[in-house]
Design a protein around this nucleic acid. Sequence first.
RNA 1: GGGCGUAUGUCGGAAUAGGUAGACGAGACGGUCUCAAAAACCGUUAGUAGUAAUACUGUGUGAGUUCAAGUCUCACUACGCCCACCA
Length: 800
Amino acid sequence: MSTYTEIEKKWQKHWEDNNVFKAQNKSDKPKYYYLVEFPYPSGAGLHVGHVRSYTALDALARKKRMNGYNVLFPMGWDAFGAPAEQYAIKNHIHPKEAVQRNIETFKNQIKSLGLSIDWSREFATTDPEYYKWTQWQFLKFFEHNMAYKARKNINWCPNCKMGLSNEDSSGGVCERCGHPVEQREKEQWMLRMSTYAEDLISGLEDTKFQDRIKTAQINWIGKSTGAEVEFKLKEVNDNLVVYTTRPDTLYGVTFMVISPEHPLIEKYQDKINNMSEIKAYQEKAKNKTEFERTQMNKEKTGVKIEGLTGINPINNDEIPIYASDYVMMNYGTGAIMAVPAHDERDYEFANKFNIKIKAVIKGGDISKCAYTGDGEMINSGILNGLTNKKDSINKMISYLEEKGIGHKKTNYKLQDWVFSRQRFWGEPIPLVYCEDCGWVPVKEEDLPVLLPNVTNYEPTDTGESPLAAITDWVNTTCPKCGKPAKRETDTMPNWAGSSWYWLRYMDPHNDKEFASREALDYWEKLDFYNGGMEHATRHLLYARFWNQFLYNIGLVPNKEPIETRVSHGMILGEGGVKMSKSLGNVVNPDDMIKMYGADSLRCYEMFIGDYEKEVAWNEQGLNGCKRFIDRICRIGEKVIDQKGYSNNLEILINQTIKKVSEDYDAMKFNTVVSALMILLNEYEKQENITKDDYRILLVLFNPIAPHITEELNEKYNLGEAIYKTSWPTYNPNKIVSDEKEIAVQVNGKLRATIKININDSEDKIKEMALSEENVKNHTRDKEITKIIVIKNKIVNVVTK
RNA sequence: GGGCGUAUGUCGGAAUAGGUAGACGAGACGGUCUCAAAAACCGUUAGUAGUAAUACUGUGUGAGUUCAAGUCUCACUACGCCCACCA
């Protein structure tokens, strides 16, 4: 066991006993709110990846306090959802017990790192006192017609036996287990997130997210502009509406495609001559998983709809209609106009089904399909001769609108949020179904709707929540009319609890409101939020959507909940592969703390590399950081009882204060550590060092290694406890030494270095440079055309 | 296919705004201490040639701008991540 363990325990207790990190909801100081995504307390325990981001935010929080801020840095537990439930099922215990046990483990592990967390604000999303307010907020969505129940095809994981949102099933496989996702028709609660698409895009302007995060969100929301165009049907008095981003190519339409699930088929099944063929195709498409549909994107399939023909509204051409699964029902209108000359997918389809191809944009090779790009419009009636894509599109849209056969239309890939889960371990959706009154919200005073105690919490094959089997719980009375009624048995997705939790930390023990208005107004929003890059499009969008809704109904003070968002890089196993149990390369932080001490582990994870990049674990490197800390301890023997900085260290110390302060703020922790190593290397060359020399090293290192720095500060009696101290400032007049070594180049190549005084004149420096032996060697027999002197940096002698 | 990003010794990585490339750490090699080892400490460590001074080459590849390019511009290659039959 490391000798550091005792020291670490001592200071952790000291901080706790003295409430050092407790944030106040009122203060004369400016506020700052740091948050790192709270963990799922899974059975695997803390990962060294957690240590990286927790330490980074802890270092920032500690420095910010020393900079005079009232800092909120809380921690809690995201404990609902599949991981906790699956752990419980596997280990045959109740999820509640599993969660409690895992939280205990996580908390002890996190505490052993010595993070400056305000533990008085801790909660878990599974606490009834917390999920009461999650339910309450859901009812606000319901009240404002933002929640609705719809029978629709949803992504269904047959392995987890659960419905998934689009976000949970990207790539056609279940996010949790990797099993291919099927389509199932189910009644699902939905949140109207798609109505916030535009606000979720524009709101990004009010954040300081990195561009890569903004881009990821914008791409996910998937805004596109184009037009909806009505095609009359020849055989019946009805329209088929298509969505296109290229209305300018309307003259090039040679067929139309509708999704196999398109309602048109059922509606006119009497008119369709090959219904059985179509039915067979529909069946095939339905059984295809989303995964297969995307994997087999090369080979187009489809079937012609015999008996229905579209009429091109621009020129009255008769247009055959096909059903094909390359058209999705959940985007646009589920129907497209196909322009094979200028769209690759349409081209492939036309080729396979021998449909004619008609070019409407000049240039490019039709046999290879010439999509996009500006070009002269041909065979296009009113558009002929136009050469600019934008002009052509605008002209066509005006024409369509004028004639009443189409209009401008914006579409988004973002869908409404599938908010039901058929699982036990989630917040019960607080609604009751009454035969007479329909869906009725549970009264506020009856919240929370608690999860019942049951023995069987495993998912069912029927697609019903396990809660449905608990008749005592299901049967209730209608909150409106008092007649017998039934509870909703679906639960919320695990994303629900994390969609507003930062608000609860502001006022975590409030039993009257989810947070008081005073607390909300004081803390406002997250100033700094750290989390995984994998959450850039899901958790972050859900959280922003939820907050924007709360803002719109006047419950929170800010439209955007997060000012700055940063993401840490993953920590990989030795050799650069992902840490996994099966590879046996998982590093347990507890073991590392035992062997090297928490400060060494923290220091190593900050030193390991660029914070945002993934990096491979290397225990030798950790040992190197322990050596560094050992040396810091040993240098204490050189301390003499003297104030002020040593004369010959003064410049380096001031430079280091400047660099370290700036690098902390820029999250360049690796160079913070290296700058401190350079400082220590210099101390070691000294006969002895002053108390202030020693203390400044400890103060600058304190955010990363808080225990040992406090201990040494106390042991050598250097001053007040570091956590009570202000962050040091540097003397700007003492960061440049008078003497400097600069380079001398001849034609850009280094030939010598000279020692100059910073007050030396340019002429003197030129003279010194030219008198260097090696410079003479390279300028001999040559004409010097120019001598460039960059102050305090370089001299470049240019010859012909 | 689309979007975003990355490329520097044996390895992780440094290099404010174009100005001495390889800081700092790891590893390796040599040494001190020790009966020995570990730990600790000292030295060397981009490549090639040379005893050395020094010279040449060198930041994925090829061009360009500049007195000067890891850094700026253009083209290319490789890898990574995210999205993807989204009309």
